[in-house]
């Protein structure tokens, strides 16, 4: 897991999974890296093979933190399966999802 700070955006990359075993660590890692100036968190899910409900819980928690400062979470390049799950759970309504380039 790595973070990159680009202006108002905090980019999180190198996530092989976002599941029960690492969701808490992920949340704390992102919160730790967040600076007051950050209003967008971009989570690159391009390398993520699986995301479960605990991982979603962590994303929603970060989303709420950013809402408090008028910001948002953007999810980049989820796999079709993960994307399907976001839609199934109607989370595409609260996250901005950037599809994988075809």
């Amino acid at each position: 897991m790595r973070t990159e700070k680009i202006g108002p955006t905090l980019l999180v990359t190198d996530l092989p999974t976002l599941t029960s075993d690492n969701s808490r660590a992920f949340k704390e890692f992102v919160r730790g890296a967040l600076e007051p100036a950050h209003t967008v968190v971009e989570v690159d899910l391009g390398a993520a093979r699986s995301v479960d409900s605990n991982g979603l819980g962590a994303l929603i928690s970060i989303h709420k933190t950013l809402c408090g400062r008028g910001g948002r979470v953007r999810l980049l390049h989820p796999s079709p399966l993960i994307n399907e799950m976001f839609q199934l759970l109607q989370l595409d309504k609260i996250f901005e999802i950037v599809p994988r380039p075809t």
Partner: peptide, 18 residues
Amino acid sequence: ELPPPDSEDGRGLFLIKT
């Protein structure tokens, strides 16, 4: 039932059932 969108949990059983 699906929990409210900003709820951090409560989706596991929904996924299993669905």
